[in-house]
């Protein structure tokens, strides 16, 4: 019995050591890969424009559960603003499109482990993300908006002084208004909670990404997005694997071309307009179109 026990302990220790070694090499291996690919482009071979054309399939990472940007309709077809762009890109490249469904937190991994060539999943450009992926030109803009009751609308930031404002924790809205003085913030954990709070008149207004607010006021016509855009503008861009110059250049040219053709206004009218209220214009979301 005693002998058995000590043997078990030894085996346990060995297993832990082996796992630790695996983990170490796993991390080391992947980081050295990253540096390779950003230097010589050797590891992103399967995602260069030539490789994609040869394969005949462009693999795009999209959301499957975020209407109206990337979702699946009742007929099982992938639709949305991002998905439309993906189909157009594949068409212009002359290849078929294949969708890889992702969540917000595995977008970067999907790219780095070669599961997709490009991300079109409402991927907002931030300085931190720029370190791990390469962004092409933006195709959409978002910023913080403020929603308030139509009876007591808030249309200027100065009206918020001394009043309370609802935000969700971890959003850009919280970040921005934490820096503003004279505004009392009421912070909530989820979208459902924050919208319930404004319905219960817990504060004068609510701040969040304007694209969510547009869709929400459409369903709640007693409210209005009084301030459509406040604070720094943020952009949504296609992202490719770090160092994939070939696809990055192609995507930049493609976006420029689509901009001059006014593609994004069409895309907006088709996919986003039905979800947003009348007070929203395509220029609130779409970047400048035409030559």
């Amino acid at each position: 019995m005693k002998k058995n026990k000590s043997r078990n302990i030894i085996i346990g220790i060995v297993v832990v050591v082996i796992i630790a070694v695996f983990a170490f090499f796993g991390i080391k291996g992947s980081s050295s890969n990253n540096s390779n690919s950003s230097g010589s482009n050797s590891n992103s071979n399967s995602s260069t424009v030539t490789a994609i054309k040869k394969r005949g399939v462009l693999r795009v990472a999209v959301f499957g559960d975020l209407p109206p940007y990337g979702w699946v309709n009742a007929n099982g077809k992938r639709v949305g603003y991002d998905v439309n762009l993906a189909r157009q890109m594949a068409k212009d490249m002359g290849v078929k499109v294949k969708f890889v469904q992702v969540n917000a937190n595995n977008r970067v991994d999907t790219l780095n482990s070669d599961k997709a060539d490009i991300i079109l999943a409402n991927f907002t450009v931030t300085p931190k993300r720029k370190d791990v992926v390469d962004y092409a030109k933006p195709y959409m803009k978002v910023s913080v908006g403020v929603v308030s009751p139509k009876k007591a609308p808030i249309t200027k930031a100065s009206q918020l002084k001394g009043k309370s404002l609802i935000v969700t924790k971890g959003t850009t809205a919280e970040n921005y208004f934490t820096k503003q003085k004279n505004v009392n913030l009421l912070k909530f954990d989820s979208k459902t909670q924050q919208f319930n709070a404004i319905k219960n008149k817990r504060a004068a207004a609510l701040a969040d990404d304007n694209s969510y607010l547009y869709a929400w006021v459409k369903r709640n016509p007693k409210y209005t997005v009084g301030i459509k855009s406040i604070g720094p503008k943020q952009y949504v861009s296609p992202a490719v694997k770090k160092g994939n110059k070939s696809l990055l250049n192609w995507a930049n040219k493609e976006i420029t071309k689509l901009n001059s053709k006014g593609f994004f206004t069409m895309d907006y009218d088709q996919e986003l307009k039905p979800y947003f209220g009348k007070e929203v214009k395509s220029s609130d979301i779409v970047l400048k179109q035409g030559k």
Binding site: S30, N33, N112, S113, K115
Partner: peptide
């Protein structure tokens, strides 16, 4: 491990 690490480290895709 199978989905993210194998392709990245050993190029099994």
């Amino acid at each position: 491990l199978a989905y993210y690490i194998l392709p990245r480290t050993f190029h099994v895709n």
